[in-house]
């Protein structure tokens, strides 16, 4: 049982005091935090992607590290390295910034594949090997990576296999006119105040435990499977559909959403609500999407909408 003051909704409300007009982004961050996955945020500059990740870390009260990805970054800059200590005559290990509860990988597509792999291995294995030693990463461990879809020069596109490691991909959209007015009203000229220690790392672990107990009816599980299978059906614009990892991600996020909504059972709305964020980065769109100038989001929505709900 989760105490009232420690409910996930409390964290969401606290984040909304700092981040205005990005409800979808904040919900995705919270769901991924509960489901134990990593988040990829994509959107133009200035939409509070980095701020949202910082606010989440501050509100959870865990350790937070930010890594600015650049073309000259090395894997050891992320995971750490072994340094020779002349006084003792032994190698000592210096742990890298990946050793934090919440890691912000800013502009993750600006570093070469070797560096991206170093991060993604940690994301998958929840441990890092430096020299002869293997170090477990903290629990919870969540990577929030950002990408800017506009400036493509000097970037290294993430391969589909690496994108698959992210539980969700969130498209950060511009706020509405009213929300932008609210942002100006609230933060004009001042740095937005961060919510501090609203919940604890232990609370997050308790939510994860509770989320795993959320009931998913067999018919809803079948709906999850059907949704992912639908991405693999023959499609004019899709060459390759989502993997079974997407099936697991969809169910885990649906459970997390149900928990945030105060339920101990998932409903079709939970699956439907998280499906675009789970599936959009796992489909391989073909060249016709570009030549016909078709919006991939519409394709994803079409695939989801064509599957009957239970």
């Amino acid at each position: 049982m989760i105490a009232a003051e420690r409910k996930p909704q409390t964290l969401l409300d606290a984040l909304e005091t700092t981040i205005v007009g990005q409800r979808v982004t904040l919900e995705a961050l919270l769901y991924a935090l509960i489901a134990g996955g990593h988040v990829l945020l994509e959107g133009p500059p200035g939409l509070a992607k980095t701020l949202a990740c910082r606010a989440l870390a501050s509100a959870v009260g865990g350790s937070f590290k930010r890594i600015q990805f650049t073309p000259d970054l090395l894997p050891s800059d992320i995971v750490g390295t072994r340094v020779f200590d002349q006084r003792s005559g032994e190698f000592t290990t210096v742990l890298g910034p990946i050793f934090a509860h919440i890691v912000l990988a800013d502009e993750v597509n600006r570093a070469p594949a070797k560096v991206q792999s170093a991060l993604l291995e940690g994301m998958q294995e929840h441990q890092v090997t430096i020299g002869p030693q293997t170090f477990p990463l903290p629990d919870p461990f969540v990577v929030t990576a950002t990408m800017n879809p506009i400036d493509s020069e000097g970037t290294y596109a993430l391969p589909l296999a690496q994108m698959d490691r992210f539980l969700v991909k969130v498209l950060v959209d511009y706020p509405s006119i009213e929300e932008e007015g609210c942002i100006l009203e609230r933060f004009g000229g001042e740095q937005p105040a961060m919510p501090r220690d609203v919940v604890t790392v232990e609370d997050v672990l308790a939510w994860r435990h509770a989320a795993r107990a959320v009931h998913v009816e067999p018919r809803l599980k079948r709906y999850v499977v059907d949704l992912v299978a639908a991405t693999r059906a023959k499609h004019d614009y899709v060459d390759r559909g989502a993997s079974p990892r997407a099936t697991l991600a969809l169910a885990a996020l649906a459970r997390a959403r149900a928990l945030v909504d105060g339920r101990d059972f998932a409903v079709p709305d939970d699956v439907r609500a998280v499906a675009p964020a789970v599936l959009r980065h796992r489909l391989a769109f073909n060249y016709r999407t570009l030549t016909d100038k078709v919006d991939p989001e519409t394709i994803v929505a079409g695939v989801i909408g064509a599957v009957p709900t239970p």
Partner: peptide, 25 residues
């Protein structure tokens, strides 16, 4: 049956976009 298409300015990007439904067999 090939996708139905919709031409509109995508409010998210501000650019003219070509939306398409799924095809139906």
């Amino acid at each position: 049956i090939a996708p139905t298409t919709l031409d509109a300015i995508d409010a998210r990007s501000g650019k003219p976009s070509h939306f398409a439904t799924n095809p139906v067999t």
